[in-house]
Design a protein around this nucleic acid. Structure first.
Lengths: 184, 184
DNA sequence: ACCATCGGTTCGTTCATTGAACCAAGAGGT
DNA sequence: ACCTCTTGGTTCAATGAACGAACCGATGGT
């Protein structure tokens, strides 16, 4: 989708990749999908993305085989978007971007990624320094760091305040009406 | 530049990175800079990018410390854009994108990256399988593969038909060599 | 004097993004 | 039956970015 008209003249697999995931928001959608976000509304509130753009991105990512749209209940028919192997394969690229962004543009660490087997923080290539192996995405735990807003507005960010294994579906506390919260 | 307005709400180093290099064309400019492209006109013809967009990207990348603009001759005053350490640090991300793009969307291999010391093709994380070390970008050779157009239109693509060490300034047919310029 | 090159800027058109409004199919309560 | 809420969208006018062609200015060559 990403403007194939021009990138197509490039004989380069980087350009080819960017045609697929180079558009605005796209990589953030994939990131969220790997974090376990699956529902339209969760993407919406977590990303703060316009609805029309989200619909377009989900559609394109599904067509490219990066997300898989599937029915998760029939009663009111509802679909969820689950990241595929092809989408999971973007993890090294996302991780490299995260390492670069943190190294060069962030003053504090927001989150860390740890190997679920031993708790060791992953190295720059997604490997576990203790075990000496590349850790599969499903064996990575996302743990919140000290620099994170302790009371974010959207339920997805709140769910991510607790350690979260990647790829596992995210459960948000969907509380429709009044209940106990807010000690100021 | 890259739409900080919205991504800024994201507490995430991936989003932060994409604010800097997530705009259209930006990562391809960085790729070319790592390949050794330094001159405005070489970027222009190799990327097929509109001049106004190229000017904006070079300016933004320079301001972010990813490129360094420096005078390489005085007679007609001419500047070149040289990739900095911060830009070189994007190499793992570019490489991960290239691996993903080739794996999932390309039928043939266009180029290969080899370790200059031993000629071994790099592994997915930019490591040399033979030497067992991560290869610094300056020790990588870009070699053309079989699927490449043998007679491309622009001089930059033609120059890249021969093996080319990364980071070394690219010399095109018409351009004189910048002999006095030495990296640090 | 004339033309070419390099590195841009300017400008009108086209295309994508944005945000607000609207829509529709259940589900649940009264 | 009726009203209302939730979920997952679509539509639309306004804005902003990208595109491509034209133009510009400094310099060098003939």
């Amino acid at each position: 989708m990403a403007l194939g008209k021009d990138y197509a003249t490039q004989e380069c697999s980087i350009a080819r990749a960017l045609e697929v995931v180079g558009e605005r928001w796209t990589l953030l959608v994939v990131r969220d999908a790997i974090y376990g976000v699956r529902r339209y509304n969760d993407f919406l509130v977590h990303l703060g993305i316009p609805r029309a753009v989200l619909s377009a991105r989900l559609k394109a990512l599904t067509e490219e085989g990066i997300l898989d749209r599937r029915r998760y209940q029939e009663s009111p028919p509802r679909d969820e978007y689950v990241v595929t192997e092809r989408g999971i394969a973007l993890w090294p690229a996302l991780r490299a971007l995260a390492v670069w962004g943190r190294e060069h543009f962030m003053d504090r660490q927001l989150r860390a990624f740890r190997h679920v087997d031993c708790g060791t923080e992953l190295g720059p290539y997604g490997e576990c320094p203790a075990c000496g192996t590349v850790v599969p995405v499903g064996d990575v735990v996302l743990v919140p760091g000290p620099g994170l807003d302790p009371e974010p507005a959207d339920p997805v960010s709140r769910a991510l305040l607790r350690p979260k294994r990647l790829l596992e579906p995210l459960v948000t506390e969907s509380a429709p009406t009044g209940e106990s919260v807010q000690p100021v």
